[in-house]
Computed example of a mutant assay.
Amino acid sequence: MDTHLLAAALPALGWAAHTSLLTHRLTTARRDPLTGLHTRDGFTTRADRITRRHPDAAVLLVDLDDFKAVNDTHGHAAGDAVITATAHRLTRWTGAHGITARLGGDEFATALTSLTPTTGLAALREALHRPVAHHGRWIDTSASLGICHLTDLPAPTLTDALAAADAAMYADKGHGRRNNH
């Protein structure tokens, strides 16, 4: 091989390897290591696209009730099991109709292309209230939900939808934990 060609190819190979590494780091930075779900940054990018393209889109926020008590009573590994189960249940419910993310701690978000009665919001609520198995024990779980339909907003933006869903979620918490289904 010509040494001039090799000298020219080496920087290109170096840049290709560097680009691949940066792409991998960016991808993993946008994924939650425990659940594999998108993080807030990854969610915001994709959810914004959904809300701009689908006028009947909906945003859903989920917050686990009494999650600190799970960690305090059963340990952090049990808390991780509850977080992972919640992520799985939300992902299965969302399917190919949107994106689900773990925003942090015990808070999750979903942006759906539409939220209809056939989407089964009652089924989601029931799934999120099922106990989670961990080391031969059952851990009771419950979650508060906040939903915002873009059609209910004067300015249908992701920011406004998240704010409205957050307010609805806290109103749901106010109706009594473990009793809101």
Rank of each mutant, 00 (worst) to 15 (best):
F67W: 02
K68L: 02
V70C: 00
N71T: 04
N71W: 12
D72C: 07
G75V: 12
G75N: 14
A78V: 12
A78L: 04
G79W: 05
G79R: 06
G79K: 05
A81D: 09
V82K: 10
I83E: 08
T84R: 00
A85R: 10
A85W: 06
A85M: 06
A87N: 04
H88S: 05
L90M: 10
R92A: 13
A96Q: 12
R102D: 02
L103A: 01
D106F: 06
F108M: 11
A109F: 02
A109P: 02
T110Q: 11
A111G: 07
L112P: 05
L112M: 10
L112Q: 09
L112C: 13
L115K: 05
T118Y: 11
T119H: 09
R125S: 04
A127S: 14
H129W: 07
H129A: 15
H129V: 01
P131S: 14
H134Q: 09
H134T: 08
G136N: 03
R137L: 15
W138G: 08
W138E: 14
S142K: 14
S142Y: 13
A143N: 02
L145G: 03
L145D: 02
G146V: 04
H149C: 08
L150P: 00
P154C: 05
A155W: 06
P156N: 06
P156R: 08
P156Y: 04
T157Y: 07
T157L: 06
L158S: 11
A161D: 00
A161S: 00
A163E: 10
D166E: 01
D166L: 00
D166W: 00
D166K: 01
A167W: 01
A168I: 11
Y170A: 10
